[in-house]
Deep mutational scan, measured.
Amino acid sequence: SQQIATAKDKYEWLVSRIVKNHNENWLSVSRKMQASPEYQDYVYLEGTQKAKKLFLQHIHRLK
């Protein structure tokens, strides 16, 4: 749906803004993002596993 696509774009923007180093780990980054509406919306719509998967894809691109 359009809502999910929009939430994903915003979440990816948030991840790219916060995660600048491929050594970052999911636990510390997800804690930093918990207060962000972009993170909350995406997790609400798609779940934590998908959020983690996108985070890991971003990390992989930074290597």
Rank of each mutant, 00 (worst) to 15 (best):
V29G: 03
L27P: 13
K32D: 04
Y44D: 15
N25I: 05
K20E: 10
K10H: 07
L14M: 06
N21S: 12
K50P: 04
W13Y: 13
F55T: 02
S28W: 06
S1N: 13
A5E: 06
I18Y: 08
N23E: 13
K63Q: 11
R31V: 08
W13P: 01
K8N: 02
K32R: 12
K52N: 03
K32C: 04
H22W: 12
L45H: 07
W13Q: 15
Y11S: 00
Q49G: 13
N21K: 10
V43S: 01
Q49Y: 08
F55L: 00
R61I: 01
S30A: 09
K20V: 08
L62R: 04
S1M: 09
Y44Q: 15
S16Y: 07
L56K: 12
I4S: 09
H22Y: 10
Q34H: 08
A35C: 10
Y44I: 13
D41Y: 06
H60Y: 11
S30W: 11
A35F: 10
S36W: 13
L54H: 04
Q40L: 13
S28D: 14
I59A: 06
Y42Q: 04
K10D: 07
D9R: 13
Q49W: 06
S36G: 03
V19D: 02
L14H: 02
V29F: 15
R17C: 10
Q2T: 13
K63H: 03
R61L: 08
Q40S: 06
K63M: 02
T6E: 14
Q40N: 11
K63P: 03
E46R: 04
H22K: 12
Q40T: 08
Y39W: 05
I4M: 09
E38S: 06
R61V: 05
K63I: 10
N23W: 09
Q57V: 07
K50T: 08
L14F: 09
S30H: 13
L45G: 03
L56G: 02
Q3P: 06
Y11I: 00
R61E: 12
I18C: 07
D41A: 12
S28C: 08
L62D: 00
V15Q: 03
A35G: 14
L27Y: 14
Y39D: 00
W13R: 15
K52Q: 13
S16F: 05
K10M: 06
Q40E: 06
V15Y: 08
G47N: 00
S30R: 11
L54Q: 02
L56S: 01
T6Q: 11
Y44W: 09
Y11H: 03
L54V: 14
Q49E: 15
D41E: 15
E38T: 04
L54A: 06
M33S: 01
P37A: 09
K8P: 08
D41W: 07
G47K: 02
Y39H: 00
Y42H: 02
S1D: 14
I4Q: 05
T48G: 08
V29C: 10
R61A: 09
Y11W: 03
Q40W: 13
L14D: 04
Q34Y: 07
N23Q: 12
S28Q: 14
S1T: 12
K53V: 12
Q3W: 10
K53R: 11
N21C: 07
K32T: 09
E38G: 04
Q3D: 15
D9W: 13
V15K: 00
E12M: 14
I18S: 08
Q49M: 12
A35K: 13
V43M: 04
V29E: 04
A7C: 06
I18E: 04
Q40F: 03
K20W: 04
K53L: 13
F55N: 02
S30I: 08
N23F: 07
V19L: 03
V15G: 01
M33H: 02
T48C: 08
W26S: 01
Q40Y: 04
V29W: 10
N21E: 06
L14Q: 05
S36T: 12
K53H: 11
R61C: 05
I59S: 06
S36A: 14
K32P: 00
H22Q: 14
V15E: 00
E46L: 05
S16V: 05
S28N: 15
W26K: 03
N23R: 11
Q40M: 09
F55G: 03
T6S: 13
F55C: 04
L62F: 03
H60C: 14
F55I: 05
P37T: 13
W13G: 15
K53Q: 15
H60V: 10
S28I: 05
Q3Y: 11
K10S: 05
K20I: 07
Q3M: 12
K10R: 14
K10P: 01
Y11N: 00
S36C: 15
K50L: 03
R31P: 05
I59N: 03
Q3G: 11
N23P: 02
L56I: 14
Y11G: 00
L45W: 06
W26P: 00
I59W: 02
R17P: 02
Y44S: 15
K8W: 01
R31H: 07
D41V: 06
A51F: 03
E12G: 06
L14I: 00
H60E: 15
K8Y: 03
N25S: 15
K10I: 02
F55V: 03
D9S: 14
T6L: 12
Q34E: 15
A51E: 00
Q40R: 13
P37D: 07
K53G: 09
Q2H: 08
T6A: 14
S16E: 11
G47D: 04
F55S: 00
N23I: 06
Q49F: 07
Q2N: 14
I59T: 09
R17D: 04
R17H: 09
Q2V: 06
E46A: 11
S1F: 09
V19M: 03
V15W: 01
E46C: 13
A35E: 14
H22D: 13
P37H: 11
S1R: 08
V29T: 09
Q49R: 11
R17L: 05
W13T: 15
V29Q: 01
Y39L: 02
A5W: 08
T6N: 15
H58D: 00
Y42M: 01
R31T: 09
E12S: 06
Q49P: 08
A35M: 10
V43Q: 03
W26C: 05
W26N: 07
Q57D: 15
G47L: 03
Y44M: 15
K50G: 12
N25E: 13
H58S: 02
S28T: 14
Y42V: 01
R17N: 11
M33I: 09
K10F: 02
T48S: 10
S28R: 07
I59E: 01
Q40A: 07
Q34N: 08
L56P: 01
Q34L: 09
H60K: 15
L27T: 14
A7S: 05
Q34K: 10
R31Y: 08
Y44G: 14
P37Q: 13
E38Q: 10
S28Y: 06
A5F: 05
H58P: 04
S16L: 05
H22S: 13
A5R: 11
V43T: 07
Q3E: 12
I4W: 01
L62E: 05
N23T: 12
H22R: 06
D9G: 12
E46P: 01
A35R: 11
M33Q: 00
V19Y: 01
K50F: 01
P37I: 12
Q49I: 10
L27E: 15
M33W: 00
Q34T: 08
L62G: 03
G47R: 06
Q40I: 10
A51D: 02
Q34M: 11
Q49A: 13
K32Q: 10
W13M: 15
Y39T: 02
P37R: 13
E38H: 05
I18G: 01
V15P: 02
K50A: 15
K63R: 11
D9M: 15
Y42R: 03
P37S: 10
L14P: 02
Q57L: 06
E38W: 09
L14W: 04
F55Q: 01
L14K: 01
S36D: 04
I18H: 09
H60T: 12
Y44N: 15
H58V: 07
R31W: 09
L54E: 01
S36Y: 15
V29R: 04
V15D: 00
A7T: 08
V19Q: 04
N23S: 11
W26R: 02
K32V: 07
Q34D: 12
R17G: 05
K8S: 06
S36I: 12
E38D: 09
L62Y: 06
L45R: 07
T48L: 12
R17F: 02
K10Q: 07
K50I: 01
Q34S: 10
Y11M: 06
Q34A: 12
G47C: 00
V43F: 00
N25K: 13
V15H: 05
S30P: 00
E12V: 12
I4N: 08
E12R: 10
Q2W: 10
L62A: 03
R31G: 10
S30Q: 15
S28K: 09
S30N: 07
I4L: 10
L56N: 05
D9L: 13
I59R: 05
Q3I: 10
R17V: 08
I18W: 06
K10Y: 00
W13S: 15
